[in-house]
Amino acid sequence: MLNSSEIRLVECPRDAIQGIGDFIPTQKKITYINGLLASELFEYIDFGSFVSPKAVPQVVDTVEVLDGLEKGKTKLLAIVANERGAEAASKLGQIDYLGYPFSISETFQKRNANSTVEESLERVKRICDLLQFGKQDLVVYISMAFGNPYGDLWHEDLVLGWIERLSDLGIKRFSIADTTSEASVEAISTLYRLVANQFSSIELSLHLHARIEEALLKVNAAYEVGCRRFEGAFLGFGGCPFAKDDLVGNIPMELLLDRFGKGNPQQIMQLMDAFQEMIGNNDV
């Protein structure tokens, strides 16, 4: 029987808007994210990113957005791609988590962070050193965890091996990410079970991208093998602009809220409308 109190949801407006070309005014972002915070429906919110503004212009105002947020119980996460971003973010006490995208696909890691996978491991080590005496925790996103569209080597043991090497650094939080919607329902069940069984002491979340007709099937498959922390974005927006041209959006947050009995229909509709108001006529 479903116990909705066991479910933790992570809303990802940063992921939802990062590929939108027309710049969304800072105040619109602040208003929207404050609405998410006030709802208290989410464990944490992926609100911004400390990456090159040339690479992702939409998040150039992350610090200004942070300054305008009215934080309550809900925690905040910001994405970093290197030591420079981590150092800047580590000085901001309102941020609870830093997220590092660690792709196990060599091609995508080059595209996304201009480094090899081994070089990325060294970056993570240095970021851990930066955070050693701070209050922030590092969340490592295992990107391309279910395969990749580039023909790079992939298998479940590769995922497990990288999580083992990263967890040996003391990292306790991981997000298993399907960046380009490679995962089948069966693959989600198999990989999540393997990771959860081998690494019972770490905290796991699942960051899926899926076409709408597959989204609920994938969520249910993960839930049935023990996943209790899911990431998504309202209206299913999102996708990494460095991945490939045919972007597949996030799991719609409204689907997750409905599936796990969180919020009420009026509240959910208000948040959906607020997201649409923020993005206006923009699309990805």
Results as ranks from 00 to 15, higher is better:
117 V>G: 07
221 A>L: 03
193 R>V: 04
224 E>P: 07
156 E>S: 13
270 Q>I: 00
142 I>L: 14
60 V>F: 11
101 P>T: 09
13 P>I: 11
211 R>E: 14
100 Y>F: 15
40 E>I: 03
148 N>A: 01
43 E>D: 13
84 R>K: 12
110 K>Q: 14
131 L>N: 09
64 E>L: 06
203 E>Y: 09
249 G>F: 01
215 A>P: 12
90 S>D: 10
195 V>H: 00
114 N>W: 05
245 D>H: 12
277 E>R: 13
263 G>R: 02
66 L>F: 06
154 W>G: 07
242 F>G: 04
193 R>I: 01
264 N>R: 08
235 L>C: 12
104 I>Y: 09
244 K>Q: 15
241 P>V: 08
123 R>L: 12
219 V>D: 10
221 A>N: 00
205 S>D: 13
73 K>Q: 14
223 Y>W: 11
171 I>V: 15
70 E>R: 13
224 E>V: 05
146 F>T: 07
12 C>K: 03
56 V>S: 09
273 D>L: 13
196 A>M: 08
54 K>V: 09
72 G>N: 14
232 G>H: 03
167 S>Q: 14
171 I>K: 12
193 R>Q: 15
260 F>I: 03
105 S>W: 05
227 C>K: 00
267 Q>W: 02
280 G>K: 10
155 H>D: 15
250 N>C: 03
29 K>L: 12
169 L>S: 08
250 N>W: 06
227 C>A: 15
269 M>P: 06
87 E>S: 08
52 S>M: 10
197 N>R: 11
108 F>D: 08
140 V>N: 01
50 F>H: 01
257 L>K: 08
267 Q>K: 14
166 L>C: 04
209 H>F: 07
78 A>M: 09
71 K>H: 10
97 Y>N: 02
189 S>D: 08
139 V>M: 10
258 D>V: 11
150 Y>V: 00
107 T>I: 10
213 E>A: 13
123 R>Y: 11
166 L>T: 00
222 A>P: 01
5 S>M: 12
147 G>K: 10
42 F>V: 08
265 P>M: 01
20 I>P: 06
214 E>V: 02
42 F>M: 09
96 D>G: 09
67 D>R: 15
217 L>D: 15
71 K>R: 15
115 S>E: 06
85 G>Q: 01
11 E>V: 00
97 Y>V: 01
120 S>G: 15
203 E>I: 08
148 N>L: 01
155 H>W: 08
186 E>V: 05
78 A>Y: 06
139 V>A: 04
53 P>V: 13
220 N>F: 00
119 E>T: 08
220 N>C: 02
224 E>L: 12
51 V>F: 05
21 G>A: 04
87 E>V: 11
197 N>C: 01
50 F>K: 07
39 S>M: 03
114 N>L: 02
109 Q>A: 09
280 G>V: 10
98 L>G: 08
141 Y>Q: 08
74 T>Q: 13
21 G>V: 08
173 R>D: 10
